[in-house]
């Protein structure tokens, strides 16, 4: 019963549903992946053990080196199935170490496959400080003209401190299923109430934090289909066109101006569909239904 029916349509493997290891294997050139500190090199988190919580030898993130389109890349992939991909002491230090290693190895890019709710509460202080260290390490890599790309398409999205990390990267690539935001909808609902943000309204959550919205607003440089092959092509396109120049006073002035302008322009909006109408999209209600290619075309046709 496990054999596929003859002639049955076989969809591309979903990036959203894949494990961190599957994502890395599918993303990179076949046979090129080399994991650093593979299980069981490191002990699992003693902080989780102290709370009788199960640990993992990779602490929820795998790191290593490989080739993508024959270009050398360093990769960190968070495993959303372990503690929601949350950053603890070991988890964070692995990513920091990888980014520091990039300074010496000068890869074509560091790829961060982000799938995380943010700081791991069970090691809260260590997690928060680790996120800050990742932030500094991303910017140090970028200052050395190494591209750092964030790929967001996992089941946990990119939230909390990891969302700030994403915004520091050279570019963000998202799938429609990807979500990016600082506070998760559940947190906002818990603190501010159901009327402020109904976290169970999945369509609303996607209109506020999802890949299509972030792409239309320019917070994600590209929108890709939900497959490792599509993310792979997105990275290749990015590496071909990416300007690796680090931030300058002029570039941050320009960003500042853009962020101020859009804050003013969209200050009364509370739903993605209102923003899309403001961007000049004539049928914003159709955006959630559009295929990826149609949405790319729609964005290209928008007034500047």
């Amino acid at each position: 019963m496990n054999a596929a029916l003859p002639g049955a349509f076989t969809p591309a493997p979903s990036f959203f549903e894949a494990t961190a290891r599957q994502r890395v294997q599918q993303l990179l050139d076949a046979g090129s992946w080399r994991e650093f500190l593979p299980p069981p090199t490191l002990a699992s988190s003693p902080h989780l053990a102290a709370l009788d919580m199960p640990g993992a030898f990779d602490d929820g993130v795998i790191i290593g080196a490989g080739l993508l389109g024959a270009k050398a890349v360093l990769v960190a992939a968070q495993e959303g199935r372990f503690m929601g991909g949350a950053v603890g002491e070991i988890h964070g230090a692995k990513i920091v170490g990888l980014l520091r290693r990039a300074l010496a190895e000068k890869p074509a890019a560091v790829l961060l496959l982000v799938d995380s709710g943010g700081v791991r509460l069970h090691e809260a202080n260590a997690g928060l400080i680790a996120v800050s260290e990742i932030m500094r390490a991303v910017l140090a890599a970028r200052a050395a003209r190494i591209a750092v790309l964030a790929l967001i398409g996992g089941s946990c999205g990119a939230f909390g401190g990891m969302a700030i990390v994403c915004s520091l990267c050279s570019a963000v690539l998202m799938s429609e299923e990807g979500r990016l935001g600082l506070s998760g909808p559940e947190v906002i609902e818990t603190v501010m109430g159901f009327e402020e943000f109904d976290a169970r309204d999945r369509a609303l959550v996607w209109r506020v934090t999802g890949g299509k919205h972030r792409y239309l607003m320019g917070d994600s440089a590209d929108l890709v289909e939900d497959s490792s092959a599509a993310f792979r092509q997105g990275v290749l396109d990015c590496l071909g066109s990416q300007d690796t120049a680090p931030a300058t006073l002029a570039s941050l002035r320009a960003t500042q101006k853009g962020l101020r302008a859009r804050m003013t322009r969209f200050s009364s909006c509370r739903d993605g569909s209102e923003v899309w109408a403001g961007l000049g999209i004539s049928a914003p209600q159709d955006v959630p239904l559009l295929e990826r290619d149609a949405l790319i075309g729609l964005k290209k046709g928008l007034p500047a």
């Binding site: 969302a163 700030i164 994403c166 915004s167 990016l180 935001g181 600082l182 506070s183 947190v187 906002i188 603190v191 501010m192 402020e196 943000f197 506020v208 934090t209 919205h213 972030r214 607003m217 917070d219 962020l259 859009r262 804050m263 969209f266 200050s267 909006c269 509370r270 739903d271 993605g272 923003v275």
Partner: peptide, 13 residues
Amino acid sequence: LSRQQELLCLNGS
């Protein structure tokens, strides 16, 4: 903590 702030990508600012 607000939907309006998240809509405009608060992590970005």
